Amino acid sequence: MAQHRRQNVKTVRRIAGTTAIAAVATLAGPAAANAAEVVVPNTDYSFNVEGLENVPNIDQIPNVDQYVPSLSAQETTSTTNYSAEAPAQPATSSTGQQVVDAVYSKIGSPYGWGAAGPSTFDCSGLTSWAYAQAGKEIPRTSQAQASGGTPVAISDLQPGDIVAYYGGASHVGIYVGNGTIVDSLNSGSTVSERPLDYMPIHSAVRF
Results as ranks from 00 to 15, higher is better:
residue 162 I to F: 00
residue 36 A to E: 02
residue 100 V to T: 10
residue 68 V to N: 01
residue 185 L to T: 11
residue 41 P to S: 09
residue 142 S to P: 04
residue 196 L to P: 08
residue 205 V to T: 11
residue 186 N to V: 12
residue 113 W to Q: 08
residue 184 S to Y: 05
residue 161 D to I: 13
residue 73 A to T: 04
residue 110 P to A: 05
residue 48 N to S: 15
residue 165 Y to H: 00
residue 129 W to D: 11
residue 38 V to N: 03
residue 162 I to R: 03
residue 155 S to W: 03
residue 128 S to C: 09
residue 48 N to E: 13
residue 12 V to G: 11
residue 167 G to M: 07
residue 149 G to P: 06
residue 115 A to S: 13
residue 179 G to I: 11
residue 122 D to E: 05
residue 71 L to K: 00
residue 71 L to H: 03
residue 5 R to E: 07
residue 98 Q to R: 15
residue 207 F to A: 06
residue 54 N to Y: 04
residue 66 Q to I: 01
residue 56 P to I: 00
residue 78 S to D: 12
residue 173 G to V: 11
residue 202 H to I: 05
residue 94 S to W: 01
residue 181 I to Y: 03
residue 161 D to S: 07
residue 120 T to C: 07
residue 183 D to A: 10
residue 157 L to Q: 04
residue 79 T to H: 10
residue 135 G to Q: 08
residue 140 R to F: 02
residue 150 T to V: 01
residue 94 S to A: 10
residue 54 N to P: 00
residue 179 G to Q: 05
residue 198 Y to K: 13
residue 60 Q to V: 03
residue 158 Q to Y: 01
residue 150 T to C: 10
residue 145 Q to G: 05
residue 104 Y to T: 13
residue 77 T to A: 11
residue 148 G to L: 06
residue 6 R to N: 13
residue 28 A to M: 08
residue 125 G to D: 09
residue 57 N to E: 14
residue 193 E to W: 03
residue 114 G to T: 09
residue 37 E to S: 12
residue 189 S to A: 06
residue 187 S to R: 03
residue 5 R to F: 09
residue 138 I to N: 13
residue 44 D to K: 15
residue 162 I to A: 00
residue 121 F to H: 04
residue 161 D to Q: 10
residue 121 F to I: 09
residue 204 A to F: 04
residue 21 I to W: 06
residue 31 A to N: 14
residue 44 D to T: 15
residue 22 A to M: 07
residue 89 Q to A: 08
residue 47 F to Y: 12
residue 151 P to E: 12
residue 125 G to I: 08
residue 195 P to A: 05
residue 154 I to F: 06
residue 92 T to P: 02
residue 108 G to M: 07
residue 37 E to F: 03
residue 185 L to H: 04
residue 204 A to N: 00
residue 146 A to N: 04
residue 201 I to M: 02
residue 140 R to S: 08
residue 144 A to Y: 09
residue 104 Y to W: 09
residue 6 R to D: 14
residue 162 I to V: 14
residue 186 N to A: 14
residue 53 E to T: 07
residue 69 P to I: 04
residue 9 V to C: 03
residue 203 S to V: 15
residue 183 D to P: 00
residue 136 K to G: 01
residue 94 S to F: 07
residue 123 C to L: 08
residue 174 I to T: 13
residue 202 H to W: 00
residue 202 H to C: 10
residue 175 Y to I: 12
residue 55 V to T: 01
residue 117 G to W: 02
residue 78 S to P: 04
residue 187 S to V: 14
residue 184 S to D: 07
residue 123 C to A: 11
residue 77 T to H: 01
residue 174 I to P: 02
residue 130 A to E: 10
residue 17 G to F: 08
residue 96 G to R: 00
residue 177 G to T: 13
residue 164 A to R: 00
residue 134 A to L: 06
residue 161 D to V: 12
residue 173 G to P: 06
residue 65 D to W: 03
residue 52 L to F: 14
residue 107 I to K: 08
residue 91 A to W: 08
residue 203 S to P: 12
residue 51 G to K: 13
residue 45 Y to S: 07
residue 22 A to P: 05
residue 107 I to N: 02
residue 82 Y to E: 15
residue 91 A to K: 14
residue 192 S to V: 12
residue 112 G to R: 14
residue 33 A to L: 10
residue 169 A to Y: 07
residue 148 G to Y: 10
residue 142 S to Y: 08
